[in-house]
Amino acid sequence: MRLFKVGPSPFVKKNNSVKILLEHMILVLLALCVVGAVFCGYRVLILLLISLVSAFVFEFLFNLVVLDKKGLDDDLSSIVTAIMFTLISGANTPLYMPVIAMFVAIIIVKMLFGGFAKNIFNPAGSGAVVSISLFGAVASTWLTAGISGKFAENPLNNIATGNFANFEIYDFLFGKAGTIVGAVCLIAVLAGGLYLIIMGVIDFKIPLMALLSFAAVAFLLNGFDFNIMLCYLIGSPVIFVSFFMLTDYTTSPNSFLGQLIYCLIFGISAYFLVKYNVLYSGSVLLALIFANAFTPLLDRVIRPRYFGEGVKYGQ
């Protein structure tokens, strides 16, 4: 007789898995890479390749040397990290930069914190922040920038210097802007975000709250000027970051109140970091990492009130 295979209830499970979620994410990110390559040239694909290879190599080496096991982890997270790094760097980023960034992202931020889903900071974001801060002022030239004096050609510098003239939203829709690879086409970013929301991968609340708080601060502190607010919102990579990086499960709080505070921290700090152009395209990422740092605290302090909590006997 065939033996019964017995598992714990529930016997039906929802048709999702970590793999499916990450696959949706990778699909969207790769599509954005292709869009980036179309507008910024083939160099994007070389950056992507180097990031992917170095991510795999570092993961392999760490597993071999520290964890004493052969092969790569079978989760897809390092692929996400590598693609993500490509998307948040400028198209002219030097080709050795992904190696440095992946070292920081995979080894320091991810593996040393205990591996997949144990990290506190966003790996790709921290990698980019470290690599940009290492090279200071040079980093601004990594973004594709022109000289014709349009706002879109060097939006981050223009924001910092208060030069909001010649702002045309059209430039940001079709890759005429000097910004990170992932954000060259606003339509693609929004479409990707929408896809992830519809597929249930990300929660629409986090990007919504983050963008609202960022926009609100920009609106209030610039004399209620709608145009300047739009320059801030679209000129900096904040939309890309709030859709694809802020929503990361591991590094964002779970409770609604926690998410609200997290988004406020992100929105407000991102505004000031962008305004004073602290790290060029890394300013928003720095705000992201700053907000990430609060997540463990927020998750610990803000807990849902469970059924019957505080009720002595019955009420």
Partner: peptide, 19 residues
């Protein structure tokens, strides 16, 4: 079973609001 990815879906669904 994989390690938890801290997605918070379980907290959202729990009828007695546990974590």
């Amino acid at each position: 079973e994989l390690p938890c990815i801290n997605c918070g879906k379980c907290t959202k669904v729990c009828p007695t609001r546990l974590e």
